[in-house]
Design a protein around this nucleic acid. Structure first.
Length: 444
RNA sequence: GCCCCGGUAGUGUAGUGGCCUAUCAUGAAGCCCUGUCGAGGCUUCGACUCGGAUUCAAAUUCCGACCGGGGCGCCA
């Protein structure tokens, strides 16, 4: 019975049901565990959809086949054809009695990390053996939820008339200065990996595309070694024209978060359970506090903040917003020019020139999004560049788009992994990247 | 980049100068067991990151390198 399995007949474990009892079925996947009781053995076969039990009877299979099947190393790829049989002694209510099997790819032993072992594994070790780490259902669940979340975001943006675009990740100039750019050799020229699609998004507003979004990697050469920073992250950027103020952008962002988290709740229940986390869809409108108000709230709570919120203040504000508004998500608005000084493209507040029309969206004390209304008047834009010592000549390709009719516009950049990090309450953001890149890790 | 902490079997750990021929769990190899689902029982295997120093004696102290963890700054 060895080797006679037709993979064309293969069904996923989750597709099996009691309705199919009596039928011959073929499954294939990784042999998670073998429990050999002597005359009977239970093989647990796992694929991405779930686990199915294959029950081997020594009497029925013969000593030789029984020994072969129960001797297959854990995590080998195996295909099995057999009869689906109802049995209340199995937690799923059914099992497969094999009629033939194929050992497709035998696994080496011992495993670099156990898939089901009852010992902890450090994140670093897990990431070094990510292919095996991802075989764990609770690790896979993170990426299933990521898929659902991102799909929910796309659905919403499409419903709001946004066009998906892709801009180059190879750039000659950054949006926020050179220190955080990764230099690359581009044929005979100096180029960089894009830290943000910012300048291109705005040029597309000048092109008249009106509403666009891009989901693409962003690269930051910041020397940030924390549980919420990575050198390469997935950034969802949107830009929209003919806005009255940054409020229009914030409204889209609220809709985006609500719609995508609803999708997670609706379609991702099983994966949330796998991870043991509960997710709440935020109520709209999200609370809004100006940065000055936030600083006041923190002062009242006994935390003195000067300038921008530091990490401690950010976390504390998360607690205060929960206590005051029951809100996990909230906007911090009207960032002072002083804090946004490198953001030369930020529109300043017409009512108070020391402030900008810029906001952050925070989720339980962690920054998820930064955005605002951009400066579309080229003379103002140039003077803001010059004010921080940038040479407009270096941005000529960008400024050209402002000379021939640039509508008022705004947008934001959202860190996908930041959303997952906070939504799933994961200890480290690296857990929600398949192959994370940080200051020290380039492999795998 | 700065501050603090750590590196012991494949994995996760105990061990603060001699009691270490290094603990426990998990795992691997083998044996027993016809209803397991964190299966159980028995046997065996497997480790002190590297280099230098101190000492009669170093997993343990000191120095350096490499690797990792936590926090900060900065940001998505």
């Amino acid at each position: 019975m060895d080797g006679k399995v037709d993979l064309g007949e293969r069904v996923e474990a989750a597709a099996l049901s009691k309705d199919m009892v009596g039928q011959s079925v073929t499954v294939a996947g990784w042999l998670q565990d073998t429990r050999n009781l002597g005359g009977i053995a239970f093989l647990l076969l796992r694929d991405r959809s779930g686990i199915v039990q294959v029950t081997c009877l020594k009497k029925k299979l013969g000593d030789e086949t029984f020994a072969k099947m129960t001797g297959i190393p854990r995590e080998s790829v195996v295909a099995i054809t057999g009869e689906l049989k109802s049995n209340d002694q199995v937690s799923s209510g059914f099992e497969i009695l094999p009629t033939s099997y194929a050992l497709i790819a035998e696994s080496a032993a011992p495993l670099p990390i156990g898939v089901t072992d009852k010992v902890g594994v450090e994140l670093d070790t897990r990431l070094n053996n990510r292919f095996m780490d991802l075989r764990k259902p609770q690790v896979l669940a993170i990426f299933k939820l990521r898929d659902i979340l991102v799909r929910g975001m796309r659905e919403y943006l499409v419903s709001q008339g946004f066009l998906e675009v892709t801009t180059s990740k190879i750039v000659a100039a950054g949006a926020e200065g050179g220190s955080t750019l990764f230099p690359i050799k581009y044929f005979e020229q100096q180029a960089y990996l894009a830290q943000s699609p910012q300048l291109y998004k705005q040029m597309l507003m000048g092109a008249g595309l009106d509403r666009i979004y891009e989901l693409a990697p962003a690269y930051r050469a910041e020397q940030s070694d924390t549980v919420r920073h990575i050198a390469e992250f997935a950034s969802l950027d949107i830009e929209m024209s003919f806005i009255k103020s940054e409020e229009d952008v914030m409204n889209i962002l609220e809709g985006l978060m609500v719609h995508s988290l609803e999708a997670v709740l609706k379609e991702g229940k099983r994966y949330l359970e796998e991870l043991g986390v509960e997710v709440a869809v935020p109520q709209t409108p999200f609370p809004r506090v100006t940065l000055a108000e936030a600083v006041g709230m923190l002062a009242k709570a006994g935390l003195e903040v000067k300038g921008d919120l530091d990490t401690e203040a950010e976390k504390k504000l998360g607690e205060l917003m929960m206590a005051a508004h029951g809100a996990e998500m909230y906007f911090i608005t009207k960032f002072p020019v002083e804090i946004k000084k490198n953001t030369f493209y930020a529109m300043h507040d017409s009512a108070d020139p020391s402030l900008t029309n810029y906001f952050d969206l925070d989720y339980r004390g962690e920054e998820l999004v930064s955005g605002g209304q951009r400066e579309h008047r080229i003379n103002v834009l140039i003077s803001q560049m010059e004010a921080i010592g940038y040479d407009p000549k270096d941005f000529e390709f960008y400024l050209q788009a402002f000379r021939y009719g640039m509508p008022p516009h705004g947008g934001f950049g959202l860190g996908i992994e930041r959303v997952l990090h906070m939504m799933l309450r994961l200890p480290n953001i690296r857990e929600c990247v398949l192959f994370p890149r940080d200051m020290y890790r380039v492999v795998p």
